[in-house]
Write a protein that binds this DNA or RNA. Structure first.
Lengths: 166, 166
DNA sequence: TTCTACACGCAATATTATTTCGTCACCCGG
DNA sequence: CCGGGTGACGAAATAATATTGCGTGTAGAA
C-alpha cells in the first residue's frame, strides 16, 4: 500500500474519530456519506497504515487524584546520539513522565510530568530526574491551569492547505 | 453525587479504557472480572461523573502532513485575570494551538502548536501570536522527535499511592 | 472496446450493547 | 434479632451494531 494518499472521505473519518473515538461505525458511515461496510474497511486500512495509532479514553487526572502537572526543561551534558537515546529510554521507564520531546535550542528535552502531589514530584525530581546520568540542568514549571488540550491535528487547517494546493 | 470514591474495579476500567478506548464492553467486563451489564453501568457512571472526559483516535500528525510541532513559551505584560482569560480564549480560537497551559515561574504560558510546514508556523508566530495584544515575549522550540507520548495518568503509580494510604 | 482492479452497497450472519428483572448482600432502625 | 430499603450483581431476552459474502458499476489500461 504505497500511494496512501487520503481522499476527502478518509480525512473526514479521521476528523470524526479524533473528535469521538467511540462513534459507532454506522454513525460514522452516515456522517461521511457512505454505507457501513466500506466505511469499516476504510477505518481498518487507516489503522493498519498507521494514520490511526490507537484509541484512548481521556481520563481526568485531577479527578483521579493527580493534582500536580509539571513541565520540565532538561539539558544534557552530551548530545551524542547514544546518550540521547539512553535518556529517552529512561523517560519511557519513568511512569510520572507522560511525554518526552527532543527540542532544538538551548534546552534538549521537554517533559510533561504528572504526580499525585508535590512531594511525590519533588522526590522524583531530585531523586531520579536531576540525579540521572548525563543530566546537566532541569528547570520545572508547575501547571496552574489548562486552557486547552486537544491532542491531534486541526483538520480545518488541513482542508485549507489542500485547497491551496489545488 | 459528591466524591464517589473509586473501587479497584473502577480503576481497572479506567486503566483499560485509557490503554484501548475502543475495547468492547464484553472484553472489558472479562478483564475486570464482572459481567457485561454492571460493567457498562460503571463506564456510563464514570463518563457522567467526569472521570472519563471522552474518547479520541490518536491520529499521526506527521503521516497527515503536519511536519512541524513547536513548543512556545509565552510571557504576558499583564497577569490580571481578565487579561489571562483573554489570552486563553485567543489560544482556543487558534487551530494551530493544540494545548495551552498556564504556568508558574517566569513564563506565563506554554503552548503546543502544530503546523503543516515551517512557513505556516512562522506566519502564525509573527502574524498572530507575537502580534497579539498583551503578549510580551515568545520563545519557541521546534520538536525534533518524540520519545514518549502517553496522555493520561499512570495507574500503576495510583496503585502504589493507594497502597501507602492503606 | 474489453479487461482488470477497485470500491461500493445490499443482504445475511455473528457479535455486541442494552434493557429487564429476579437475587443477594449490606446496612439501618425498630 | 429481625424486617425493609438500597444498591450491585448476573442471567436472559431484545435491540443495535459489526462483519462477511457477494453481485454491480465505474475508471483506467491495453
Amino acid at each position: 500500500m504505497p500511494t496512501s494518499r487520503l481522499d476527502p472521505i478518509d480525512r473526514k473519518i479521521l476528523a470524526e474519530l479524533q473528535a469521538d473515538g467511540r462513534m459507532t461505525n454506522v454513525e460514522l458511515a452516515k456522517r461521511v456519506g457512505i454505507s457501513a461496510p466500506p466505511c469499516l474497511r476504510r477505518v481498518r486500512t487507516l489503522e493498519e497504515a498507521g494514520f490511526i495509532q490507537g484509541y484512548h479514553a481521556k481520563v481526568d487526572s485531577r479527578e483521579l487524584g493527580f493534582e500536580v502537572q509539571v513541565f520540565a526543561m532538561v539539558g544534557l551534558q552530551s548530545q551524542a546520539e547514544s546518550d540521547l537515546s539512553k535518556f529517552e529510554q529512561r523517560c519511557r521507564d519513568w511512569p510520572l513522565v507522560r511525554e518526552c520531546h527532543m527540542l532544538n535550542g538551548e534546552v534538549d528535552f521537554i517533559l510533561k510530568c504528572v504526580a499525585p502531589d508535590l512531594s511525590t514530584f519533588q522526590s522524583f525530581l531530585t531523586g531520579q530526574l536531576t540525579a540521572a546520568e548525563n543530566v546537566a540542568s532541569v528547570k520545572t514549571s508547575l501547571v496552574i491551569r489548562c486552557a486547552k488540550d486537544e491532542p491531534g491535528v486541526p483538520f480545518d487547517v488541513l482542508e485549507e492547505r489542500l485547497n491551496r494546493l489545488a
